[in-house]
Simulated assay, not measured.
Amino acid sequence: MFVKPEPASALFAGPYALATLSEPGGPDFPALVTADARALDLRVAFGDPHLTVRGLLDAWDTSAPRLASLATDGGSERRPLTDYRVCAPVEPRQVFQSGANYRQHVIDLHVAHADPADDRSEDERRAEAAEIMDRRAAEDLPYVFIGLPSAITGPYDDVVLPAWADKPDWELEVAAVIGRAAHQVPEEEALEYVAGYTIANDLTDRATVFRRDMPQIGTDWLRSKNAPGFTPLGPWIVPAASIADPGDLRLVLKLNGETMQDESTRDMIFDVARMVSYASQSARLLPGDLVLTGSPAGNGMHWGRLLRDGDVMDGSVTGLGAQRTRCVTEDRS
C-alpha cells in the first residue's frame, strides 16, 4: 500500500516518475506517476501487456519522450496511488555498490572499526582517515563492488533482520539508474547514460563485514549486505532531466522519528559521473542496472544504536521522494 509522504509536494521533482505497482493478487506492472499522486498503467498506454520498467529503460531514448508526453496528457486514465502496492521500481540485472564515498562517513567508520589493539587517539585515527581519502580522491579510485538483485525489496515493505545479523545497520543512498549500455565511458559523458535516480537503503550487518577467520581476505560483502530485503529501493525512478544537480541533493534518514543521517551529496568524494564512469571501466553497465553512490555519515555504528525489531526507518532524498520500512526480526526458533 502506498504511504504518502508529507507534504504532498515531496513526492518527486519534475512532471512524472516511473514506478512498478501491483494490485492485490495481480502482477507487477510499470506505471507513470504524476505529482497529484495518481498512476497510469503503462501496459495500456504502450499497448504491451508484458511491458516492464526495465523494458522501458532498454529503449530509454524512445521511451523518455513518450513518457513526458503522457505526463501532460490530461485525457489519460489515471487512478489514485492508494489503489496500489508500490514495489521496487526496477528489477536490475546488476547492482554496483559503493563504499567509503562520503568524507565524514569514512572518518566515522575508520574510528568505529578500529583494531582493538590500536592505542592511538581518536583524533589520530580521524587524521589518518582524512589522509587516505585525500589520496583516493587524487588517484580517482572509487571503491565499487557487486550486490545482488535478490536483496532488493519495495520502499514500504518490512525488512527482515536475519537471526545471524548481530549488528544490522542502515545506509541511505542515491542510486543512479542506467538507461543506456555503458562500457568504458569517460567521466564527462557518464551522466548521459543515466536514465534517472531513485533511493536505496543499503543495509549492512556490521558484524560480518570483515572475515575474522581470514583477516587477510578482507571484506565479506556477500553475507553482510545481501540478505533478502536488505536493499529497500524506491519508491520510483525520477528522470535525470528532472534533477538539476545530483551533486546537490539532501539525504535524510530518521529512525523512529529521530534524525540519524542528514547530509548533502556535496560531501561525496567521487560524484555520480565519476562513479558511473569508474564502474564502466571494468564492467558493461546495462539498462536498469543500479549504481549506488555511497552513504553519508550517521549510521548506527556512529550512534552506537543498531537496528532491532519494530524499528521504523524513514528515508528521503531531495526530489526523489521518501520510503518507509519497518524492521522485523527473523524467528530464531
Results as ranks from 00 to 15, higher is better:
66 R>K: 13
227 A>I: 02
196 G>Y: 03
246 P>N: 02
35 A>S: 15
164 W>V: 09
329 T>C: 09
203 L>A: 05
10 A>P: 00
227 A>Q: 05
287 P>T: 08
106 V>W: 01
298 G>H: 03
264 S>D: 02
111 V>L: 15
249 L>T: 06
9 S>W: 00
41 D>Q: 15
120 R>N: 10
236 W>A: 14
107 I>F: 02
40 L>P: 06
203 L>W: 01
112 A>M: 10
153 T>I: 06
185 V>I: 12
226 N>M: 11
84 Y>N: 06
301 M>K: 13
17 A>L: 09
9 S>P: 10
290 L>W: 04
144 V>G: 01
112 A>K: 10
214 M>E: 12
109 L>Q: 07
224 S>N: 07
284 R>I: 03
271 D>A: 05
37 A>Y: 02
128 E>T: 07
47 G>T: 02
55 G>W: 08
105 H>E: 00
163 A>R: 12
235 P>T: 11
27 P>S: 10
299 N>G: 12
110 H>E: 11
284 R>P: 00
330 E>K: 06
118 D>A: 04
147 G>I: 02
289 D>R: 11
298 G>F: 05
101 N>L: 01
306 L>N: 09
208 T>F: 13
85 R>I: 07
96 F>C: 05
166 D>T: 14
9 S>H: 09
17 A>K: 03
244 A>V: 04
13 A>Q: 04
154 G>Q: 07
179 G>A: 07
212 R>F: 13
241 A>R: 15
208 T>L: 11
171 E>Q: 11
280 S>L: 06
279 A>H: 00
151 A>V: 10
219 T>I: 04
277 S>D: 00
23 E>T: 11
326 R>I: 12
97 Q>F: 00
272 V>I: 13
91 E>L: 14
52 T>A: 13
217 I>P: 01
15 P>C: 11
201 N>D: 15
58 D>F: 09
248 D>N: 13
239 P>F: 14
226 N>P: 14
333 S>G: 15
123 D>C: 03
266 R>T: 15
267 D>S: 11
85 R>L: 12
127 A>F: 00
275 M>D: 01
125 R>V: 03
80 P>K: 07
198 T>H: 04
287 P>D: 12
253 L>R: 06
85 R>C: 08
273 A>L: 05
250 R>V: 00
127 A>Q: 04
222 L>Y: 07
290 L>K: 10
57 L>H: 08
133 M>N: 05
43 R>Y: 02
121 S>D: 15
328 V>Q: 00
192 E>Y: 01
244 A>I: 03
274 R>E: 03
198 T>R: 04
228 P>D: 10
175 A>I: 14
110 H>R: 10
219 T>P: 10
309 D>Q: 06
41 D>L: 05
298 G>T: 05
152 I>H: 06
269 I>T: 05
29 F>Q: 08
253 L>K: 03
280 S>M: 06
231 T>P: 08
110 H>T: 13
166 D>L: 14
233 L>C: 14
126 R>T: 05
283 A>C: 09
300 G>C: 10
116 P>H: 04
145 F>W: 12
54 R>T: 14
229 G>I: 04
111 V>Q: 11
293 T>M: 02
56 L>G: 07
146 I>Q: 08
202 D>W: 03
248 D>S: 09
287 P>M: 08
200 A>T: 05
89 P>N: 14
202 D>G: 08
203 L>C: 14
288 G>C: 07
321 G>Q: 13
200 A>K: 01
2 F>M: 13
32 L>N: 03
161 L>T: 01
80 P>Q: 08
